[in-house]
């Protein structure tokens, strides 16, 4: 890349281009892969520098603290190997851990009293590449895991056209539709999975319930949650949600 390209990258990142210039930039980025790749690296470099320099003091504090806990832990392990007597530090650590557990229980209990919403539950399991290494599928997986649901939605739709019976893809496609408030598409996709015999049946029920929760249709949410079988991964979570809703 030439000097003026780097100046252009920086101006684009800092939002200093006119609408027309931005458009020209994006067109070039979409058609010229070498230009696009250099831009990605330039952007990553900028983010890296920004974070490492701005957070330098904080990171150093963290490293120091980590170093001392680590040294303490490994010295203790050596000491235990020669002389099996719990040190004061060790007992203190145990107390400290107990205290932290109490704090967590507190936070947990506090959360239980607020009204549940969809966003309490939308930490989806990351997509993993299902089969083969089709280009769109990799891009879709990346987009999904980066929470770019709009992009994942378009890509998954493409992939599904070639592999319409794949219930794992159907499920992830449905999730993107819930995220984008396309409830009709989401619910009909999920119904297909629920009616079928795949391993994703219960997961689909859970997401159907979450979709109704997001639509604030509490009655339907409850009905769906009750259908989730006891062996399902989401069973416990579903019971907890039911308790809060009923």
């Amino acid at each position: 890349m030439e000097d003026q390209d780097y100046i252009l990258f920086d101006s684009y990142i800092n939002n200093e281009l006119s609408a027309e210039e931005s458009l020209a930039f994006e067109n070039r980025r979409d058609s010229d892969e070498a230009f696009a790749q250099s831009f990605r690296v330039f952007l990553d470099a900028t983010i890296y520098l920004q974070n490492s320099i701005r957070n330098e003091a904080e990171t150093n504090d963290f490293k120091k603290n980590l170093e001392s806990i680590s040294t303490n832990h490994f010295n203790k392990a050596k000491a235990v190997a020669t002389k099996p007597q719990p040190s004061k530090v060790f007992r203190f650590a145990k107390l400290a851990m107990a205290a932290s557990v109490v704090i967590f229980l507190g936070v947990f209990a506090f959360n239980q009293f607020s009204n549940p919403t969809y966003s309490d539950y939308n930490a989806h399991e990351p997509m993993t590449i299902v089969r083969g290494s089709v280009k769109d599928l990799i891009a879709a997986t990346k987009a999904f895991n980066n929470k770019d649901y709009e992009k994942a939605n378009v890509l998954l739709k493409n992939v599904l056209e070639k592999d319409p019976e794949n219930s794992e893809l159907q499920l992830y496609y449905a999730i993107t539709n819930i995220e984008l408030d396309n409830y009709k598409v989401a619910d009909s996709q999920l119904n297909k999975i629920i009616a079928g015999e795949s391993a994703y049946k219960d997961r689909a029920l859970w997401y159907s319930a979450l979709s109704r929760l997001k639509q604030k249709n509490i009655d339907a949410t409850i009905v769906l949650l009750k259908q989730i079988s006891e062996e399902a991964d989401d069973y416990k979570e579903a019971q907890k949600l039911l308790d809060k809703l009923e």
Binding site: M1, D3, D5, Y6, I7, F9, D10, S11, S38, V41, F42, A45, T46, L49
Partner: peptide, 9 residues
């Protein structure tokens, strides 16, 4: 600044 980040790139 732009050129330095360019150099790093």
């Amino acid at each position: 600044k732009s050129l330095c980040i360019g150099q790093l790139t």
